[in-house]
Nucleic acid binder design. Structure first.
Lengths: 143, 143
DNA sequence: TTTCGTGCAAATTGTTTGCAATAGA
DNA sequence: TCTATTGCAAACAATTTGCACGAAA
């Protein structure tokens, strides 16, 4: 299930943050480009069109910060250049298995999304995060 | 086997590039901090000390570019902030295995470095890239 | 001597911040 | 009304580029 623009707006309202044209437009842009990785500049441009009013980049960054703080959004710096933003998906998770003690830790699949995306882009290989486990050494065994 | 400063200098010479104090110092810094992830600023500082002469940041970037172009160096943007550089190790690689046709593709381990690093930072889990394969669908099976 | 590589300074790109004006609750 | 949020402009951080001089080959 995907987050809608209204979901985002609602959470802003619930935290007694104000719903402005800029914020609404940014939420809409994020909600309607779900699987896409957008830079702040991309979001700004689309939000401007959608809002029909002037929106500043600083407003975009500030809004993204707020949403990220609440866990609705993530951003990563793939390769070089600008960071890319996208909404958090339902918490599919990925397992980290310790080869020493067998413990497994769950991490949100989203954490791996950036690499999986870049692997797809570069090698045409669609990785299935859920089908593999990361093997390594857990924190306590590392000591 | 690790690359020494001389190895690096030698390759520069072989390509008829000039061996300057700045370049030599940068090579030495890289060679003597093998497993470390250094930013360009770190490298600049250490190279300045080592060379005993003024070295400019642009020179550092240009030298790093050259070494990277020749495959002796990699850099990645982990998280935010400055990118980090490190010499290429023996080409450890990672396998992408297609679950449909069994084909496997090799990708440089370095490709996965960003996530592995963030997983370590966030969960104290040291992933061993070489011990897992990414399972998914390859380009031709995807059609 | 002939270029290549340098330092310097200024330009670029991506992101953040200070502040007075404005609009949401 | 009251104050959170905005746009603007300026500050920042990381990296790149233009250029004339100096130094490797």
């Amino acid at each position: 299930m995907h987050l809608s623009a209204d979901d985002l707006v609602k959470t802003l309202r619930e935290r007694s943050l104000r719903i402005t044209k800029a914020r609404r437009a940014i939420c809409e842009v994020l909600a309607t480009s779900h699987e896409e990785h957008m830079s702040a500049a991309d979001i700004l441009e689309r939000a401007r069109v959608r809002a029909g009013v002037a929106i500043d980049q600083s407003t975009v960054y500030r809004t993204l910060d707020v949403l990220e703080e609440f866990g609705y959004l993530h951003h990563v710096h793939l390769g070089h250049g600008a960071g890319v933003y996208h909404l958090s998906e339902e918490s599919d998770h990925q397992h980290l298995v310790c080869e020493h003690c067998g413990t497994s830790v769950e991490i949100p699949l989203e954490e791996l999304a950036p690499v999986l995306a870049s692997v797809t882009a570069r090698y045409g290989f669609v990785a299935e995060g859920v089908h593999f486990a990361l093997v390594g050494t857990c924190e306590s065994c590392a000591k």
